[in-house]
Design a protein around this nucleic acid. Structure first.
Lengths: 300, 300
DNA sequence: GATGCATATACGCACAGTGAGTATAAGATA
DNA sequence: TATCTTATACTCACTGTGCGTATATGCATC
């Protein structure tokens, strides 16, 4: 049994993850520690690695497929993955794990400066070729539908949450080196590979985080104690891979009363100094009871 | 390694789960089947049990705590739990698993006929006593806050999604028999216990399902081929444990174009016959790209 | 067969949330 | 001082949603 962790921090506007083996793997290992629960063991392990208190920890998924061969060969290898949010702290030393920007692994996921050029340059044509290569018309239209849905070709908006679906489509289409397709000259989509299914686990983590920030303000775990609203916006944009509307972002944060002013200002913003704010920890919990999208009946 | 499944069906307006051991346990077992993935193995196993195709299957959570002692004593016992949606089919035979209404295990979760009486009768007073029994004022106010949040005392709306939080609070307060608190005469809250942590797994499943129906129409997996809108509403109400506003529910379903008319009507409704509708499978996939709650910037 | 009952279906209205734009404030810098 | 840059305030339109009223259409009953 093995744990794998997607440990996220955002530094200088870039979302990064903690990696080992020169960026080719996520930190993982057999965590047969003496702790009462996996969660607690993982938490202390991550805190030793990052020298930062771990704000948020969440289980992602458990893989236990037969392809995952266990060392020793008896039974299935089980891999439990976690998502953790923290802040980067340059742990020195040669054998320290390293922080890497996550868009290096998924360059097609960063839409902050508009549509990434590799979408039209590499992804779209190769996915279209894969679509055409389907065996029968039914499979072809099914592929077409999935591609259009996940990548927003044909007009739909790009949905930043579908990270995993997009990765799996590319994988299925043989455009991901990890798929290990036979053809030697197989063209692949840019993006650094990882060992085993680590890039898939990372995609799961990014997708989960992107979905989560919409209904729970977990992003505060990634911020310093005090910050400006623009810094917060840049962080959310970094995670979502999308530009946000500045005025509306402020309104959202303010009307939810997520922050309070510290009284100080930050003058190194270039223009008018911005007020520094801090996160109101107490609302984190209030937010929990938020809304439902069911048409509830209060009276009857 | 063990799999545990929360298998849900809704019959005659009651959400039910497949149980074994006279309702005291969820179906589970060491699934060392020859299948490629756990998912596939579990799917075929459930389909054999229910004689129905399994519409929806989702991993819930993996427990691997030290308290869970493995038979044989080596290492942790790992338990992977799944949520499955299907339709009930009375499998005959004496040793067949049995369907049980899930509110038998969580009577405080059914608000369809107003606030359950056991909330004011048993839950609230005992939770208040537990709150008062905290060691210091800080712990007391923390308990108070958590209780008010989860159970909506002090004015907030009842949030039907917080099934797990409520169960864990009651557990922590010693009001759940499974907690195995020392005191022999410990008063407990009504609700049938289960073996091990099965009731906790069930709570996880209910919570996940209640959250899911808000942004993905999974409830169609639980319906027959054709149905009336009121039947669909009753099913959603059964899952959510809440009454819904009829006109708004219809509007919601219609404007999302989730169903189409079959042309037939159902006359055994009592009053004016209702049109029969069927689910439009194709929108299931469109729905995926739905909305984001981030203040996106489309132009800039 | 007229009447009432029960359910289905249609429509209207108020209000909150949200996408998007314009305008003003306040510091830095040439 | 003029200009640039960023911060902050305000407006407006549109949509989603909670909730109520009105109408349609079958059935049971007298």
């Amino acid at each position: 049994m093995e744990l794998t962790a997607v440990i996220v921090a955002v530094t200088t506007g870039e979302p990064r993850i903690l990696t080992v083996d020169d960026g080719k793997a996520l930190p993982s290992g057999p965590f047969e520690l003496g702790h009462r629960s996996l969660q607690i063991g993982l938490r202390s392990w991550v805190e030793r690695q990052t020298h930062h208190p771990l704000g948020y920890l969440e289980q992602l998924y458990t893989f236990a497929d037969r392809d995952r061969v266990q060392q020793g060969g008896q039974g299935r290898a089980i891999s439990i993955s976690y998502l953790a949010l923290t802040r980067e702290n340059s742990g020195s030393g040669a054998h320290q794990p390293q922080w890497r920007g996550w868009y290096r692994y998924f360059p097609w996921e960063d839409w902050r400066s508009g549509t990434p050029s590799l979408i039209e340059g590499a992804v779209a044509p190769q996915l279209r070729a894969w679509t055409r290569a389907a065996a029968d018309p039914a499979a072809r239209s099914e592929r077409k539908r999935r591609v259009e849905l996940a990548f927003g070709f044909s007009g739909q908006r790009w949905n930043e949450d579908l990270v995993l679906q997009r990765y799996e489509l590319l994988y299925e289409a043989g455009l991901i080196p990890e798929a290990g397709h036979r053809k030697a000259v197989e063209p692949v989509v840019p993006g650094q590979p990882m060992v085993h299914d680590h890039r898939r686990i990372l995609a799961t983590g990014i997708a989960r985080l992107r979905a989560k920030i919409k209904y729970r303000p977990v992003f505060f775990e990634l911020m310093p104690k005090s910050f400006t609203l623009l810094q917060l916006q840049r962080l959310v944009e970094a995670l979502a891979g999308q530009r946000l509307h500045k005025q509306n972002f402020r309104r959202l944060i303010e009307q939810q009363r997520l922050v309070e002013e510290t009284g100080e200002v930050c003058t190194d913003t270039g223009g008018r100094p911005a007020k520094l704010v801090r996160f109101r920890r107490d609302v984190m919990l209030e937010r929990e009871i938020a809304g439902s999208k069911l048409p509830l009946s209060r009276s009857a």
